[in-house]
């Protein structure tokens, strides 16, 4: 088997074409397991997985939980609400405490960018980034890639549009890294206020007009408008946002006739996406993305835990 040369999965940045392919191939196998009547395997038997979520999540957390359980691991969920953080424990202390319980994998989500990396330096186990601030959400990008690869058969050469709240989106950043590494051409479409400064240097094209940006696209990825992260106003109103940037059939006209529509969820219907489009089973891959989520998380868990003895942790 080809060797995955990383102890943690902290982001897509730093992964090679080969690394990503390895994860996706493994995930393809995991899809089969999840579709069987008997979904439980013993790959991770005896191992402990802790899901440490400093930020609310339903789908990512349950997806990681199910992935661990299907591989036979013992899974524990810890949701650290704001109140616990207010008790005064620092992130590093929390990490050390958990580390003392001898977990084999930690899945961490945190509202601040870079915090998962910081935590990974203080523990003996493998760490998977379940989303840190506006930095990265690697398993989301992997599940998107798996969905595309299974539907279209390839990623290389595809024209992918990522639309909406790029500024606050870790999903967008991970996807940009992954898709450009795999040879897709990435376009970003959003109002200027939601385009982060200097993003052109990440190898993408920026558009301010949906029709123009969606022209001839193979894949349309919509992002959720993260109003909870917005300080001050980035756009005047939901109706204006939807009018210019909400995905509906009229704006979709210029995209390829069989363009695949994706959304990481949770969706805000009537804000970034029209219900008609979201529920168009022929074109929308939104439910498939959820299924692929479990598969890529199984793949990541399996590959990283197999590496535990192979790649030693540096001194704590």
């Amino acid at each position: 088997m080809v060797f995955f040369p990383h102890r943690h999965l902290l982001g897509i940045k730093g992964l090679s074409h080969q690394d990503i392919t390895l994860l996706l191939d493994k995930a393809d196998e995991a899809v089969k397991i999840s579709r069987q009547r008997e979904k439980k395997t013993s790959t991770l038997r005896g191992l402990t997985q802790i899901n440490l979520f400093f930020e609310a999540s339903t789908r990512t957390q349950s997806s990681f939980e199910l992935a661990g359980k299907r591989l036979g691991a013992d899974v524990m969920n810890m949701s650290v609400g704001n109140s616990s953080v207010k008790k005064g424990e620092t992130l590093i202390d929390t990490a050390m405490t958990l580390n003392a319980m001898h977990p084999d994998v930690l899945v961490v989500r945190h509202p601040e960018s870079g915090s998962v990396k910081l935590l990974s330096e203080k523990v003996n186990c493998a760490v998977i980034n379940g989303g840190d601030g506006a930095h990265e959400h690697p398993t989301q990008a992997l599940l998107d890639a798996l969905t595309i690869r299974r539907r279209v058969g390839k990623i290389q050469g595809l024209r992918v549009a990522i639309c909406g709240d790029i500024l606050h989106s870790r999903v967008a950043r991970s996807n940009i890294h992954l898709l450009t590494t795999m040879g897709a051409r990435v376009r970003l479409i959003a109002p200027r206020t939601l385009i982060p400064t200097g993003i052109e240097h990440m190898g993408v094209e920026v558009f301010n007009d949906m029709r123009e940006g969606l022209k001839d696209c193979d894949i349309v990825m919509m992002l959720r408008l993260q109003q909870e992260r917005m300080h001050g106003n980035y756009f005047p109103s939901v109706r204006e946002y939807f009018h210019f940037f909400g995905l509906d059939y009229a704006k979709l006209e210029g995209a390829k006739a069989d363009a695949l529509i994706m959304h990481p969820g949770p969706m805000n219907r009537g804000v970034e996406i029209d219900s008609e489009v979201a529920d168009d089973f022929g074109r929308s891959a939104i439910h498939e993305q959820v299924e692929m989520g479990v598969a890529v998380r199984m793949a990541a868990l399996e590959i990283l835990t197999a590496n535990l003895d192979r790649i030693p942790q540096r001194n704590l």
């Binding site: 200027r192 301010n208 001050g232 106003n233 980035y234």
Partner: peptide, 14 residues
């Protein structure tokens, strides 16, 4: 200044 910045950016969209 922040409002002016956002206004100029948002206006640039169109």
């Amino acid at each position: 200044a922040q409002v002016m910045r956002r206004a100029l950016m948002y206006a640039r969209t169109f």
